[in-house]
Structures are given as C-alpha cells and as structure tokens.
Simulated scan of single mutants.
Amino acid sequence: MGEGGRLERWCGWVLVGVAVLVPLLAWLAQLGFAPLMALAGLLMLPALRLSRDDRPVLIVLLVALAWAAVSSTWSPHVPKNPEDSTALKLGLQLPLYWSAICGARRASPGLRNLALQILAWGLAALGLMLIFEAVTGGAIYQALHGRFIEPIRPDLAGRNLGRATFVLALLWPLATVGAMRGGAPGWLAAPMAVGTVVGAIAFNADAPAIAVALAAVVGLAVLRWPADAPRALGSLAAVLFIVMPAVVLAGRAAAQALSIAPGLPLSWAMRLGYWSHAADWIGDHPLRGWGLEASRAFGPGIVLHPHNSPLQVWLELGAAGALLAAAVWWLALSRLTRDKPDLIAAAAAASAMIYLLFGAVNFGVWQEWWLAAAALCVALAGAIKGQNVLRPSTRDPI
C-alpha cells in the first residue's frame, strides 16, 4: 500500500484514539478537549489540505484572526506572559484544529467506522453514567476526584458534571448519525439524550435540556427542507450576531417603560446584568471594539465575559468583528444545503445551532476547550461523510 494508504491508516488510528478519550474527558475533565484536539491536529499534519469548498470559510476565519490580533494592541487586558495570549493561542489553534478536521476526513473507512462506533457507545455510556450520577448526587465523580486529585465539594462536583451535559448535548446528534454510519445501533441516541436531560436537570444546567429539543427541531427541519432550512438557519445566526446589542437595549428600554422587574434566578439575573453593561460599553467603541479579551477588564459589571457570544464579539472586536462572525456562521450553515434529505447535514446543523445556543447564554467566545469542542464537531462530520463532507451534493445520503 502506498503513501496515501499509510496516511489514511495513521489518521484512522489517531481518530480512534480521539474517540476513546472524548467520553472520558466529557465526564471527568472537559478542559482536556483543547490539548486533545491540538495533539490530534499535530499528529495529522500531513493530511492538512485546503480545498476549494473550504476556502471561503477559512479566508473569513483568517481575516477574523488577523483583526482579533490587531485589536489586542488597544485592549485594556494585557496578558501576563505569552502563554496567556489569546491571539497567540488562536493563531495556533486554527491550523492545528483544521489539520485534525482534514485528518478525520482522510481516515481509512474501516478505522473511521471503528472510531464512530467507539464514540457512540462511549457517549451512550456517558449518558447512563450521568443518570446514575444524578441519582447519587455525583458519588462516582466525587470519589474519583478525591482519590486521584483532591476532595471536592458536592456543589463544585455538580457544576463540573453539569458541564458534561453541555458536551453530550453538543455531540449527540453527530454521534447518533455516526453510529448509524459506522455500524452501531441507532438506539444509542436514547441514553445520550435522556442522560443529557436528566443530568442537566439534576445539576442545574438549563441550556442542555433545551438543546435536546432544539436538536430534534433543527434536524427535522433540515430533513424536511434540505435546500432552504440550512440557508435560513445561517441567516438567523448571522442576523443574531449583527443585531444583538440593539435587541438588548430595546428589551431593557421596554422593561423600564413598562416597569417590569421579573423575578429571575440569580444566574439569569446576573446574565441580564452582564448583557446590559456590555450593550452600554459597546456604544463607546462600536466600530473597532475595546480589543481582544477586553471583557476581562470590565468587572464587576462583567465577570470574565458577557456570557453571550454576539455581545462579546461586539464588545471586543466591534462591528467589524460582528460582521466577520456573521459571515462565518452564514457560510458554515448555508453550505449544508442539499438537494435531498441528508442525515449528516441535519446532524451537523443541529450541533451547530446547539453551539450557538450555548454561546448565547453560557460560554465565552475564546474558551479553549469550547473552541476545541467546535473543531471536534466539524471533525466528526468529516469522519462520517469522508472526503466530500459538507459539500452540497445529491449523492451518498444516509
């Protein structure tokens, strides 16, 4: 077998290793996704390619990366050392994560199917584990943490297990279709979905429970309208990034005019406060923004980040950054357009909208493990589809 065959086998074995580790990291150490995807990309660098179909998204990402790096020169947040530089990290993540995506596409069919089976069974086991952890109050997680790291308070253990439900909610649509494509039973979706909902409710994570229903709605819409739904979703995502500050200001003005003071849980009340402060500060530098990672300098009005991706992009990168983010989302989702129903496109769209949901209410744009989770989703789509991943086509529907 020639050089191409050796590379395909090598990428396949790397993909198998990733599949083995993903469920464990999702349960015990979500921050490990960043080094996992970086290592996978490094190992699969020989597979790095830039196809004509990929070029538009990558060009916009490169321009956005350059703008983010330039904006760091006027940001009030100054990293203490190069290891803390978000611009440097993003500059390394883009090629490494793209290499992992290309490697997943290039993996040999047999090993690719093996990886998809391992991942599906592993995430189904994670779903069952989350149900058990919900019933026992995180007993196994606390025991393992105390045995190998240090004792952990039950509330902190619950918070970490709640984060696991975010990962499972994000991955289950693609893992389900991957299971069907790789030869594993489709019913593995049930423990993934149920485990997400039960764990989310038990560990006070609202968004993952909503995400399971959102995935079903988005997936069915893309299957029903394969040519129009992806473009509509892409347009919706782009519009949200462009108009979010205006939406927040309009909502606040309406609440004040009507003297509405809703009683909300503390976490949601804090989010509304962050969003209101962010919208005000966006008005000071609406075009260029305050600079990369400037959100960290706005405490106590904002703690770390606004917990809303469009607002964070506006606050730090201004209108230019918001337009670039809108372009990335529109290009990524609209290229899922198909002439006929395609389960891979439906699953990819579902995971993309879940990522958008979580970014709108939970995570910061630049969180390393969360960016790695996005790269993992694209890599999974590539592994399921192969070389023609995300390319509009009437061929090879599942």
Rank of each mutant, 00 (worst) to 15 (best):
E3C: 01
G4W: 03
C11A: 15
V16R: 05
V18T: 08
V20L: 14
P23V: 05
L25M: 12
A26T: 12
Q30F: 13
Q30Y: 12
G32A: 13
M37Y: 03
M37T: 10
A38H: 01
L39C: 09
W67T: 08
V70K: 06
T73A: 15
N81W: 12
D84K: 11
L92P: 04
L94D: 02
L96Y: 02
L96H: 03
W98H: 10
L123G: 09
A125R: 06
L126T: 10
M129T: 13
M129K: 09
L130E: 00
G138A: 10
Y141N: 07
Y141E: 07
L156R: 15
R159N: 14
L161G: 09
L170S: 11
L170P: 01
G186N: 04
W187F: 15
V197E: 09
A202G: 06
A205V: 08
D206S: 08
I210W: 14
A211E: 04
A216Y: 10
L220C: 05
R224P: 02
P226V: 02
A227Y: 04
L233T: 03
G234P: 07
S235L: 15
L236W: 10
V243Y: 06
A246Y: 11
A253R: 15
Q256N: 14
Q256S: 15
P265N: 14
M270V: 13
R271Y: 02
R271G: 01
Y274M: 09
A278N: 05
W290N: 01
F298C: 00
I302R: 02
I302Q: 05
H305A: 03
P310G: 01
E316C: 08
G318M: 04
A320C: 11
A326N: 04
A327D: 00
V328I: 09
L333R: 00
D339R: 15
A347G: 07
A350F: 07
L357F: 07
F363I: 08
L371A: 05
L376K: 07
A379T: 08
G382L: 06
K385M: 06
G386R: 07
L390H: 01
S393F: 00
R395D: 11
D396M: 03
P397R: 05
I398Q: 05
